[in-house]
């Protein structure tokens, strides 16, 4: 069953990769990034349970904390930039830097 878990984790990672590379909308980019991170967490959890590699679980917690920080700060930055540019696509967000 470890093989099944890993194949599904790879599939989730690939879907996330497709989302990151094809979509330009901010929220979809975020969903895709979270999918990439969750694929890694799935791999770690599966290897801890199926192979008995207990060191994977603290690593999974650490990855989850980093994902949360990234989401909280990223959405905040987006909200702040969106307020001035009125755009949801990061490529179109051009702001003037006032010195």
């Amino acid at each position: 069953m470890f093989e099944v878990d890993m194949v599904f984790a790879f599939a989730l990672f690939s879907i996330g990769l497709y989302g990151v590379s094809s979509h330009k909308d901010f929220l979809r980019l975020f969903f895709s990034l979270e999918m990439l991170i969750n694929a890694v967490i799935l791999m770690l959890a599966s290897s801890a349970y199926r192979l008995g590699i207990v060191e994977a679980i603290p690593l999974a917690y650490m990855v989850m904390v980093i994902a949360t920080l990234e989401a909280a700060v990223g959405i905040l930055i987006f909200a702040a930039v969106h307020k001035f540019t009125q755009s949801t696509i990061p490529d179109e967000m051009e702001t003037e830097v006032i010195v």
Partner: peptide, 27 residues
Amino acid sequence: LMLFGITLIGTTFKPTKPNPWTVAIAF
């Protein structure tokens, strides 16, 4: 948090042209 983000941008996504190569790269 993402729901907060949606309240900012509205409920519909802007249509974007997906690159056909991205499916091949992901696969």
